[in-house]
Every structure is written in C-alpha cells, then in structure tokens.
Design a protein around this nucleic acid. Structure first.
Length: 479
RNA sequence: CGGGGCGUAGCGCAGCCUGGUAGCGCACCUGCUUCGGGAGCAGGGAGUCGGAGGUUCAAAUCCUCUCGCCCCGACCA
C-alpha cells in the first residue's frame, strides 16, 4: 500500500516503536493507566482478546480440559517451596503486606504465575491413579514487576490463560506438553496468521522450575523474536516440592508428572506488529471483532435509495454469522470512514453507492492491498466469505515470506554478527550445547537461543568454541 | 536497574537558551454548503505548562527533588 491517508501515524518502516504506540492508541485498543506499566484494554482491544479466548478455549475443552479459578494471592511459604521457581520469579513479585491497617503475619504474593498455589491444592485432591489426569485451565490476570514495559508486549499486569495438568507418568505428561504447544502453533498460525517456529528452549531460557520448555516464536517486522506461547513439562519438580502423590495400580505411591502452559495478551501485540501498516491496524478476519464494515455512499437521496440496500446487506451477512457493522453516520464523509475503519483494522469493506444500486452490485475492498471486487448482490455471502478467506491467507503468506526472508544460516561468527547488524532476524548456527558458548554468543551478537532447533549434522562445529555441535538453534534478539 | 531523550488543550507539537499577556495544526462545539479516498467557509469552547519544593517583584522558562512515557543495554511472557 503506497498512499498514506491516515495522518499522525509515523511510517512503520522508520520507527516501529513510535508506529506501534501510535497505532494501538489511534485504533483505540489501549490507554495508559495511572500506575507504571499498567494499561487499560479498551473495548476494541478487549474484543480481540475475547475472540482469542473463545477460539482457544474451545480447543482446550475439545482436548479434555476444564476451567477453574484459583486465588490471586499466594502465601510466601507456598511460593518458596520449589527452589528454582522462586529464584526465577522473586525479582518480579509484588507483595501484599497489609490488611487494612494491620501488618500481615505472612506476606502474600500477587500471583506472577500460579504453579505454587495450584500444586498446593492438587496435593489435597490427588490420591489415586483414578484421579488422573487432572486437566485444569484458568483465564486470569497475573502481575510481574517488569522494569521495561510496553502495552500488550510486556505489561506489569497481563491477562493470560494458564493450564496446569497432572499425569501418571512422563509419557502422558510429555504428550500433553506437546499437544498444547501444537494447539498454540495451529492457533497462532491459522487464526492470528502469524507464522511461528516451534521448538525447545535451552536450559538457560527454560521456565523456572521446568524440566523442558517448548515454545512458539514469531518474528516481528523489526527482526526481533516474540515468544508467543510456552508449554512446560515440569516433571516431578513441583510434585516433589508440594508432595503430590497418588497410589498407582501396583500399590506404590508415586509422584505425578506435571505440565503448565500459557499464552497472554501479548499475542495482541504480536498481531499488531505483524500485520499492521502505515494506515493502521490490520486484524486477520478470524479474530477481527468486526470482519466487514459497510459504508454507504452518501449522495443525493441515499437514505431512500442506498441505505435500505445497505441494511439488507448487513442483515444477510449477520444471518450467516459474519461479524458486520454498518456505518451510516451522516457527519462523516465516505472517504473519512474508509480511512477510519482501515485504521481500526477491519479486514473487509463493502461500499454501496447509487451506481452500485443501478447495477445491483456492491464493491468489496480488502484492507490488505485495497483490492476491489465488484460482485452482484446475489453472490454476496459466498463472495464475502471467499474474500475473507483470501485476506486471512494472504496475511499469513505475507508474514511467512517475511519470516523466511529473514531467516539465515551461518557457521561463521563474523557473518552472524553482520546479519544481526543488518536487518536482523532468525539466524541458524551450530552450537555445542554449552551454556558458556550460549552466553558468549549473546555478548557478541545480542542474540539469544529462541529454540534449540534440530540436531547438528556430522562435522558441524560450534560457532564459538569449534567443538562438535549438538544442535543448530534458531538465534534472534528477543522482545 | 545503568545510559540517553521527552512531559505545554483530547492528540501531535512550538515557546524555554536570553524569566514579563500561553500559542499552532488536527480533534471538539454552532451554522451553511458538501459527501465514490480523511471536504470548504464563518464563528466558538477548551490548558493549575506532569507533580512538589526553591530562587525572583515576576517562573512553562532558572535550580533541586519526584512521578510517568519513549529509545538503547542488563532482566523477563
């Protein structure tokens, strides 16, 4: 899209941060709250989150999960039970120390994540192999005292879902961990139209308290990677710390194997960054709160001629469960409305004017590239569906093309550094598996291991130490 | 948490260096004409200059502290 019609949005290519802030605020997704790092998710933004919830929740239910709610406050003693977990999270925990004017005997953590409180309950609930698996999810807010914040991408408080499951053995827990990360991958790619790389985290990048962390990583237009979702195999780490045991068929008491997994409102930030352009937001049809905006062309006696047709079109689409709005406001010109709804990211526009009425047609216009399709009113529903599908696909293809073009392979550190300086992106480079080399790469290039990638081939050498490589990770600078 | 930048009307900014009547564009309100890519004209409303101290006859402007936002690092979904 060449023409820039929306004023006050700085070009995405020039300063993506300014662009990002400007778009989310102009599209009315978010506002800053009075407390540092906290945001108000406004109706337009929350509607996207509701659609994310609706679609993901269905997937969780389909795979046997149920929702519950665990408390916001976690006693310090519980949080402290799993050593690695505390160490990982304690720097960013906010504490409640007063109740009214009384100082509390034990301070209470505002949940940064809920493993500890949920495990403390699981230890009461799980007795027998017949109680397993436990497959519980909750949609809640969590709080992490972050030093650097950005709306959606990293906020002090954020909304997410966290699944916490308990299983009889490693195999079942591992299967669950992978089932979930695949649900995330499919959702993020098919619904949010953001291509991701799926894989395992290195020991250093792993979730605090986990045995293995699986992640889906998306590449943003500035070449930085966004961790979009994670699924952890917790092994027996928490069950041992919280004494979650069950009596198995063989009469032996065993520790459960657990998983936990989550995606957050960060996904909205990823969506904005990935698809937006100089005219504002672009929301993929499958999550768009409004998929179609109808703009009647207000000329002459349009209220008698055009408006009734527009209303009929709206009704027809509504009956087909297409999320549609009609902008019949008189105080704005059609041109203004075009720009306004483009900025808000509505993927498909229908223009209906006097000329169209004569020809018994309507004009469909894509948000992505302003492609116009003139279609006869009889074919409305099919054509709208088809166009929405095309837009959904083209957004994914466009993002995938960018991702692929910004994924490079190298076995040379200098070339690695050069890639990081010019344009950035994912870089695949062989690594021996040693954390020291991982740290060295970060120091030299600012890139970290996003996923450890596939196993190295015979003869590939670590880019730092030159010893035989174990893996070929995806490196990138991260959000 | 370190380095840098910025807080002036809803949004974007000028004014600050060199203290002396708070300004511009967009948005908003009223009216008329407009309307197939952010319409034109005329009139109008709106700001304790982020906050608290201090210097001064006088502070948006100078000094100190503080809060917040943005960028770059370290840390993290």
């Amino acid at each position: 899209m060449s023409e820039k019609l929306v004023k006050e949005i700085p070009p995405k290519s020039e300063d993506i941060s300014k662009w990002y802030i400007s778009v989310i605020r102009k599209a009315d997704l978010v506002d800053y709250a009075p407390v540092k790092g906290m945001m108000v998710i406004k109706p337009a933004g929350y509607a996207i989150w509701e659609n994310i919830q609706k679609i993901l929740d269905k997937e969780f239910k389909k795979t046997g999960h149920t929702n519950a709610y665990f408390p916001l406050l976690i006693p310090e003693s519980l949080l402290n039970k799993e050593a690695e977990h505390v160490e990982g999270f304690s720097p960013e925990v906010a504490w409640v120390t007063m109740g009214g004017s009384e100082e509390l005997e034990e301070r209470l953590a505002i949940r940064p994540t809920s493993e500890s409180i949920i495990c403390s309950m699981y230890s009461k609930w799980i007795m027998s192999w017949r109680d397993l698996p436990v497959l519980i999810n909750q949609w809640v807010n969590v709080l992490r005292w972050e030093k650097v914040t950005r709306p959606f991408l990293r906020t002090t408080e954020f909304l997410w879902q966290e699944g916490h499951t308990a299983h009889r053995n490693k195999e079942e827990a591992m299967e669950e961990t992978l089932r979930i990360i695949n649900i995330y991958k499919n959702f993020i790619e098919n619904v949010l139209a953001i291509p991701v790389i799926m894989g395992k985290k290195s020991d250093k990048e792993r979730f605090a308290g986990a045995v293995e962390t699986y992640t889906v990583e998306a590449l943003m237009p500035d070449g930085k990677a966004l961790q979009a979702g994670t699924s952890h195999y917790l092994g027996e780490n928490f069950s041992k710390a919280f004494d979650i045991r069950y009596e198995d068929k063989d009469n032996i008491l065993k520790y459960v194997h657990q998983t936990s997994w989550g995606v957050s409102t960060r996904l909205i930030g990823g969506l904005v960054l990935t698809h937006g352009d100089d005219n504002g937001l672009v929301i993929p049809p499958k999550v768009a709160p409004t998929q179609v905006i109808i703009i009647p062309i207000s000329r002459g006696n349009w209220k008698e001629s055009v408006l009734p047709v527009a209303e009929k079109v709206k009704e027809t689409l509504e009956n087909e469960d297409i999320r549609v709005k009609l902008d019949e406001r008189e105080e704005y010109t059609p041109g203004w409305k075009f720009s306004e709804w483009e900025m808000r990211g509505v993927p498909l526009r229908i223009e209906i004017g006097p000329k169209d009425i004569e020809k018994n047609q309507v004009v469909l216009v894509s948000r992505v590239d302003r492609e116009k399709r003139f279609i006869s009113i009889e074919k409305l529903v099919d054509e709208v569906r088809k166009f929405l599908d095309d837009i959904q696909n083209s957004l994914f293809e466009k993002a995938k093309k960018f991702r692929d073009e910004h994924t490079k392979s190298t076995e040379d550190l200098e070339e690695f550094k050069k890639y990081m300086k010019e344009g950035r992106g994912f870089i695949k480079a062989p690594w021996c598996g040693d954390e020291k080399c991982e740290l060295k790469i970060k120091e030299e290039t600012t890139a970290t291991i996003r996923t450890i990638g596939e196993e190295a081939k015979e003869g590939q050498k670590c880019i730092i130490c030159g010893k035989p490589a174990k893996f070929v990770p995806f490196f990138a600078k991260s959000y």
